[in-house]
């Protein structure tokens, strides 16, 4: 605040970092728009890569290096791959799918434009004269982030590991339960190319799965 009062920074003479931020921001926002409007499902995932990569560049421009590389590793590296796997496992059509958007898209457009107008107005009005000083030592090097994370945020960090474990177990349970259902439904009508005894462990497993579900 005092910095902004001492050295006035105008919007009409942007610095190089600001110009780079603006250009990358335009690319990011355009890719996000294509992500939510394209009718080809796989292309939506690929444009999401552009959006997340652009955000990583924005983090680098804000001198938050560690966050930027974590963004590249986790989002671009794993989340998008998970989404692509999900698209392929649910047999998404490769070409244009005409029913990608639901019927209430105009209501959604109204809500989104109204929210964007209100948020942008409030944010611009509040932080018009605020200046981030990006010179000097970077604010988010690995050393700084690691020190703050393991000195001040150790307990939330450990709690987060428990949450990740819970999510892992939850994902396993969710996919395993459906498989037990399928086995239970399939085993009574399985034709017997196998010998007679072959069907019984399958059926027993299905019954065991049903029992487990009942216990749950």
């Amino acid at each position: 605040m005092t910095l902004a009062a001492a050295v006035p920074h105008g919007f009409l003479s942007p610095t190089g970092v600001e110009i780079a931020f603006l250009l990358v921001g335009l690319v990011t926002f355009g890719a996000a728009l294509v992500t939510v409007t394209t009718r080809q499902l796989v292309h939506a995932a690929l444009w999401l890569v552009v959006t997340l990569g652009g955000l990583a560049v924005e983090y680098l421009l804000l001198t938050a290096e560690f966050i930027a590389w974590v963004q590249v590793l986790i989002y671009v590296g794993s989340v998008v791959v998970l989404l692509l796997f999900g698209l392929m496992l649910t047999r998404a059509p490769i070409g244009r799918s005409p029913d990608a958007d639901s019927g209430n898209r105009w209501a959604a457009l109204t809500v989104a434009v109204a929210a964007a107008a209100a948020l942008v107005w409030v944010v611009v009005d509040a932080f018009r004269a605020t200046w981030i000083d990006l010179d000097g030592e970077p604010a988010g090097t690995t050393r700084v982030t690691g020190e703050s994370l393991f000195q001040n945020w150790v307990l939330p960090f450990e709690a987060l590991s428990v949450l990740l474990l819970a999510a892992l177990v939850g994902a396993i349970v969710l996919s395993r339960k459906a498989k037990a259902d399928a086995t239970a439904a399939a085993s009574p009508r399985t034709p017997g190319p196998r010998p007679d005894g072959g069907g019984s462990p399958d059926r027993a497993r299905g019954a065991a799965g049903a029992d487990q579900e009942g216990a749950r």
């Binding site: 499902l41 939506a44 029913d99 898209r105």
Partner: peptide, 8 residues
């Protein structure tokens, strides 16, 4: 709000 596919 506007998408229909759950993954989108």
């Amino acid at each position: 709000l506007a998408r229909r596919n759950a993954i989108l």
